[in-house]
Deep mutational scan, measured.
Amino acid sequence: TTVHIGNVTYHFDNPEEAVKWAKEMAEKLGLRIEIHGDTIRVE
Rank of each mutant, 00 (worst) to 15 (best):
H36R: 09
H4P: 01
A22E: 00
K20F: 08
L29M: 11
T39S: 10
V8Q: 14
G6F: 13
P15V: 12
G6L: 15
D38K: 05
P15R: 15
I5Q: 02
M25C: 03
N7S: 13
I40L: 04
K28D: 08
L29C: 05
W21H: 03
A26F: 04
H4M: 14
P15W: 15
I33P: 04
W21N: 01
T2P: 03
Y10V: 11
I40N: 01
I5C: 04
E34V: 09
N7Y: 10
G6N: 14
A26W: 03
T2M: 09
F12A: 01
G30K: 03
T9S: 13
R32D: 15
A22W: 01
E43N: 09
N14R: 09
E16L: 12
T2A: 08
E24S: 10
I33K: 00
V42M: 11
H11V: 10
E17M: 10
T1S: 08
V42N: 01
N14L: 08
T1M: 15
H4Y: 14
M25G: 01
H4E: 12
R41W: 15
G30A: 06
V42L: 15
H36N: 12
E27V: 07
E27P: 01
N14M: 07
I40D: 01
E16C: 04
V8C: 05
R32S: 15
N14P: 01
K20G: 08
V19H: 11
N7L: 10
E17K: 09
A18N: 00
D13Y: 09
R41Q: 06
G30T: 03
I5L: 11
M25F: 07
E24K: 10
I35P: 03
E27M: 07
E17T: 11
E24G: 07
H11R: 12
Y10Q: 05
E17C: 04
L29F: 09
R41S: 08
Y10S: 03
E24Q: 11
T9Y: 08
G6V: 07
K20L: 12
F12N: 00
D13I: 10
K20P: 03
L29G: 09
E17R: 07
T9D: 08
T1Q: 06
F12M: 02
F12S: 00
A26D: 01
P15M: 15
K20H: 10
K28E: 13
G6R: 06
F12D: 00
N7H: 12
A22K: 00
T9E: 12
E34T: 13
H36T: 11
G30H: 08
T2K: 13
V19F: 14
N14G: 06
H36C: 04
E43Q: 11
I35V: 11
M25H: 05
A18L: 02
N7E: 12
A22R: 00
I35Q: 07
A22Y: 01
I5D: 02
E16V: 12
R41V: 14
V3K: 00
D38S: 13
Y10F: 10
M25T: 07
K28M: 13
T9I: 14
E24I: 10
H4A: 09
E16F: 11
H11T: 10
T2I: 12
G37S: 04
E17G: 05
V8D: 14
L31R: 04
I35K: 05
F12K: 00
V3Q: 00
I35M: 08
E16P: 05
H4D: 05
Y10I: 11
A26H: 02
E24V: 10
I5K: 02
D38Q: 10
V42D: 01
Y10W: 07
T39H: 11
F12T: 00
E43M: 10
G30Y: 05
A26R: 02
V42R: 00
E27Y: 07
A26S: 07
L31Q: 08
F12Y: 05
D38G: 07
H11I: 10
I5M: 10
I40A: 01
I5H: 05
H11N: 07
K28S: 12
V42S: 02
V3E: 00
T1A: 12
K23C: 04
T2G: 03
K20M: 13
R32Q: 15
K23T: 15
I40F: 01
E24L: 10
I5N: 02
I40H: 01
K23G: 08
K28Q: 13
V42Y: 02
D38R: 03
E27N: 09
P15S: 14
F12Q: 00
E17F: 08
R32M: 15
D13H: 10
G30V: 04
W21G: 00
L31P: 01
I35E: 05
T9H: 09
V42K: 01
K28I: 11
E17P: 03
H36G: 05
L31Y: 15
K23W: 11
W21Q: 02
E34I: 08
G6Q: 12
R41F: 15
N7R: 10
L31F: 15
K20R: 14
H11L: 10
H4C: 05
G6I: 08
D13A: 12
V3N: 00
A22H: 00
K28P: 05
T2D: 07
V3F: 02
G37Y: 04
V3M: 01
I5A: 03
W21R: 02
H4L: 15
V19I: 15
E24M: 13
P15D: 06
K20E: 12
H36A: 10
A18F: 02
V8I: 13
G6H: 13
E17W: 07
E16Y: 11
I40V: 05
F12W: 04
I33C: 04
T2E: 07
L31A: 14
I35D: 04
K28G: 07
D13S: 12
A22V: 03
W21Y: 09
W21E: 01
V8N: 14
R41K: 12
T39G: 05
V3I: 04
V42W: 01
L31W: 15
M25D: 01
G6D: 12
N7D: 14
L29E: 10
G37V: 03
L31G: 15
H36E: 15
V19P: 00
E34A: 06
E34K: 06
L29W: 07
G37T: 04
F12R: 00
W21L: 03
I40G: 01
M25P: 00
G37P: 04
H4Q: 12
K20A: 14
K23S: 13
L29T: 06
K28L: 14
P15T: 13
D13Q: 12
V8P: 00
T9K: 13
E43R: 05
R32P: 14
A18T: 02
T1N: 05
H4W: 14
R32W: 14
T9N: 07
H11E: 08
G37I: 03
G30C: 04
D38F: 05
H11K: 12
E34Y: 13
A18R: 00
E17Q: 10
A26E: 04
F12L: 01
M25L: 11
V8W: 09
A22F: 02
P15N: 13
G6M: 13
T39A: 07
H4S: 09
V3T: 01
I33Q: 02
A26M: 03
A18W: 01
I40Y: 01
I33V: 15
K20Q: 13
K23I: 13
F12C: 02
G37M: 04
N7V: 09
K20T: 12
E34D: 06
E24D: 10
I35W: 08
E24A: 11
R41T: 13
N7P: 06
N14E: 10
E34N: 07
G37K: 06
A18K: 00
M25K: 05
E24P: 02
A22C: 03
E16K: 12
W21I: 03
V42T: 04
L31K: 06
V8M: 14
H36Y: 14
T39K: 06
H4K: 10
I33N: 02
G6E: 11
I35S: 04
R32H: 15
A22T: 02
N7F: 10
E16D: 13
R41G: 03
I40R: 00
A18S: 02
D38L: 06
I5F: 07
H4V: 15
D38A: 09
I33H: 04
R41I: 15
F12P: 00
H4T: 09
W21V: 03
A18G: 08
P15Y: 15
V42P: 01
H36I: 15
T2H: 09
V19E: 07
H36V: 14
N14A: 08
R41H: 13
W21A: 03
E16Q: 12
L29K: 05
V19T: 07
F12G: 00
T1F: 08
I35C: 04
E24W: 13
D38N: 15
G37E: 06
W21D: 00
E17H: 09
R32F: 10
D13M: 11
T1R: 05
I40M: 02
T9V: 14
N14I: 10
G37D: 06
T2L: 11
P15A: 14
M25W: 06
V3S: 00
H36D: 15
V3P: 00
E16H: 12
V42H: 01
G30R: 00
D38C: 04
E27Q: 09
T9C: 04
I35N: 04
E34S: 09
R32A: 15
